[in-house]
Write a protein that binds this DNA or RNA. Structure first.
Length: 470
DNA sequence: CGACGGGACGC
DNA sequence: CGACGGGACGC
């Protein structure tokens, strides 16, 4: 609702962030004088001169609330150090600390001039500068890259010379950049999540062992055990890779690390330090080991040299029916990974000729359902008219596959997968496409993944979420 | 049955 | 040194 620009509950004083000024002035400076000098910079929502409760004399401290941070910042930059009346001292002007923060430390320009943005992975520093220079002089622009590969993480920093420039960038740049003020650089060198080369292969998670059991009660009959996987009598997370030709530990590592979840990869050497042509590879879950054996046993690497991959006993119990059941479900998961995961796609290419590719390469969508032709997506900025809730079994389809699938009914805005769960949401800017999608796709199998497609419940209400800087 | 967002920098 | 009032929205 447009509750209009009047000052309501005190929480408004902190929104948007950094839109309130803290002034230190001579005690003779009144609200009127302040208003006169600060009005040119923007829409003033509130001026408050702090006074002694009893004497009503100004304490020489005032607050000026603007409707936008850029207005407050510009006013600060222009007015700091100026005298507002004959014979009065120059005023100090700072961005006020949020009322909720409790801190009275001055907010420094350092904290107000650097923004943090999400950018296309293809962006160079120059692209970044070109994009944001319209908001002001840029001191520098840097892109966060993987330290090893140099590949962009799709994130960048832009340092402006003045707070008002950063504020304008945040307020006015395309929303897809998700520009916010950067936290001052100090701590927080958080963990790198890229433990395997491909960022999209998160289906299996870090603990497929337990997550497998989560859907163990669901008997998805569409999958049968693959190849000779079950005929060998032991199945473990630990593999022995044997090669007649010389291979290095690094080569084997590179190959087997295509599959997520590797614990280690260790070349076996004899007492004289010579390679015996054997490498032990262990994964942190059975599924990855099953998949690795299935795909890489007999694989020619280097070309002409056929690798042999066998399970080796790691002492874990694998005879219980529950374990076997879990294995089959893991196999189902792996099959859908072969179809849908980038790892699978890569392996398929390289091992073609040994293992017959289980799926044609033509389309990324394999299903018996007769699908309408592809349609364009609509802007995700618009109003969501209908939202679908989709449950996947055994694991979610990749977002690009889902877009390919759900765009075909028209007006698809966005596909969102809930991280770590087998569910997702599909947003449409019209009702009909959403309903058509349910009619055609509910209960259907696509790329080996069964989907339940239904209308989503409305999002759970929550008193206003903490918002970003703006 | 299942359920609601995305981000961090070499010193 | 220089930091937080006034007013009152339906449930």
């Amino acid at each position: 609702m447009t509750m209009d620009e009047s000052n309501r509950a005190s929480s408004y004083l902190d929104e948007p962030a950094n839109s309130r000024l803290f002034l230190v002035t001579s005690k003779s400076i009144t609200e009127e004088i302040i208003r006169e000098h600060f009005t040119p910079f923007g829409e003033i929502q509130d001026i408050w001169v702090v006074k002694d409760k009893h004497t009503k004399e100004s304490k020489g401290v005032s607050f000026v609330k603007f409707s936008k941070s850029s207005q407050a910042c510009t006013a600060m930059e222009e007015m700091h150090g100026r005298s507002l009346a004959e014979g009065t001292k120059p005023i100090k002007v700072f961005i006020a600390q949020a009322r909720s923060s409790g801190s009275h430390r001055d907010v420094e320009d350092e904290e107000l001039t650097r923004i943090f943005v999400m950018i296309p992975k293809t962006f160079t520093e120059e692209d970044l500068k070109d994009t944001f220079k319209v908001y002001g002089d840029i001191e520098y622009a840097i892109i966060i890259r993987n330290k090893n590969t140099g590949e962009s993480k799709g994130l960048g920093y832009v340092r402006f010379h003045k707070p008002s420039q950063a504020a304008k960038a945040i307020e006015n740049c395309d929303k897809t950049y998700r520009a916010i003020l950067a936290e001052p650089r100090t701590k927080n060198s958080s963990a790198d999540n890229d433990y395997f080369s491909n960022p999209r292969s998160e289906h299996s998670g870090n603990d497929p062992g337990s997550s497998s059991y989560a859907f163990a009660h669901e008997s998805s009959s569409s999958f049968a055990p693959v190849g000779d996987t079950w005929s060998s009598d032991i199945i473990t997370r630990c593999l022995m890779v044997s090669s007649r030709a010389a291979v290095t530990q690094e080569q084997i590592y590179g190959l087997f690390d295509l599959i997520p979840g590797m614990d280690f990869c260790e070349m076996q050497i004899d007492q004289y330090g010579f390679s015996k042509g054997q490498v032990v590879v262990r994964y942190n879950n059975l599924g990855s080991a099953v998949y690795a054996k299935e795909k890489l046993n007999g694989f020619e690497y280097p070309p002409g040299n056929r690798l042999s991959v066998t399970y080796i006993d790691d002492g874990e119990d694998r005879t219980s029916p529950v374990g076997k059941m879990a294995m089959q479900l893991v196999a189902a998961q792996m099959m859908s990974m072969v179809w849908n995961g980038p790892c699978g796609a890569q392996l398929m290419k390289t091992s073609a000729g040994y293992t017959a590719p289980p799926v044609a390469q033509k389309s990324r969508v394999q299903t018996d359902v007769a699908l309408p032709p592809l349609k364009k997506l609509v802007s995700s900025d618009g109003v969501v008219k209908e939202r679908l809730f989709v449950i996947f079994n055994p694991s979610p389809l990749p977002v690009d596959v889902l877009e390919d699938l759900f765009c075909r009914f028209g007006s698809l805005m966005e596909v969102y997968l809930v991280p770590g769960r087998n569910v997702g949401y599909i947003k449409y800017s019209d009702r009909k496409p959403a309903h058509d999608a349910i009619a055609l796709l509910h209960g259907k199998v696509v790329n080996g993944v069964k989907m339940k497609v239904m209308l989503a419940d409305p999002p759970k209400e929550e008193s206003h979420k903490r918002q970003r800087t703006y």
